[in-house]
Design a protein around this nucleic acid. Sequence first.
DNA 1: CATAATTTTGCAACCGGGTTGCATTTATCG
DNA 2: CGATAAATGCAACCCGGTTGCAAAATTATG
Lengths: 146, 146
Amino acid sequence: MKNKAIELLNSVSLRRTGPRLAILEALLNADAPLTQDQIADAIGDSAPNKTTIYRTLTHLVETGLVHEAFLENRSQHYELAHHCGKQCCHPHFTCRQCEQTHCLTGVSTPLVELPKGFSIQRQQIHIDGVCPDCRTRNKTKEIGQI
Amino acid sequence: MKNKAIELLNSVSLRRTGPRLAILEALLNADAPLTQDQIADAIGDSAPNKTTIYRTLTHLVETGLVHEAFLENRSQHYELAHHCGKQCCHPHFTCRQCEQTHCLTGVSTPLVELPKGFSIQRQQIHIDGVCPDCRTRNKTKEIGQI
DNA sequence: CATAATTTTGCAACCGGGTTGCATTTATCG
DNA sequence: CGATAAATGCAACCCGGTTGCAAAATTATG
């Protein structure tokens, strides 16, 4: 994963520093959008200062390597843009019970047809409900209660 | 609008108080989702305390009268739910130049087809780009520069 | 290879949206 | 009207995110 991170940094000609590699690696290993906090946790003891993380993320977003995902949560989430189309990212699903967010990379997502005069740069879809894990958990609990 | 506000409060059997009527009226008059700040501004000098506004909005959301709209902005936005389907609200469009948000109530928005096991409660679509006003403004500016 | 020019980083202080605890006021119901 | 439960306001607080500035690290130059 480190090689991939270096490659990514080179591709946008950002200086290769420890913090940036660590942050990119964390995002490469993640399977859902991460907050600053979660990135720091994933890196562990050697995690950079939160200011550095935020500034790095800003750079990565500016270069297009990373996307911001606007979830229901109070804090901003970030994910690698590599699996996204130019305008339409995959939808995100947040479970109301366990509060985990899943990336729905498999589903098809047509762009909304905009009224005349609007020009699109990015479309995001966010769904909330109950995830498979919580649904089965609920069912087994019900059975247990009978 | 005041009658409508009273009617709405009755319909969910919430006590009829000054702050609640004022907040509902503000939302009834709005044509885009509003933040706490914007609601206070719309009401003016007689606006309730911000704590009261937040608590009232929480109640209104719980009863289903109001929806939260998650925009790119740092602050939460609220709008009346009356024009929304049960699961799928109209998409929101935020202009990257003027930062105004428009409700796209006219467009058709099919629900995403979820992978097996997920159950949906609400789907939100957020689009950003440039709004008609800013696009024409840009064009006239270009012409002026030549 | 040293070193100058430029970026990046870390720290501390700060900002602002949103929340909490608690005392006071208000709406509702008998 | 009086009792009771709910709603309100205030002040203090929480926490995600930002800013200014000095120190450290990276890259370019002789």
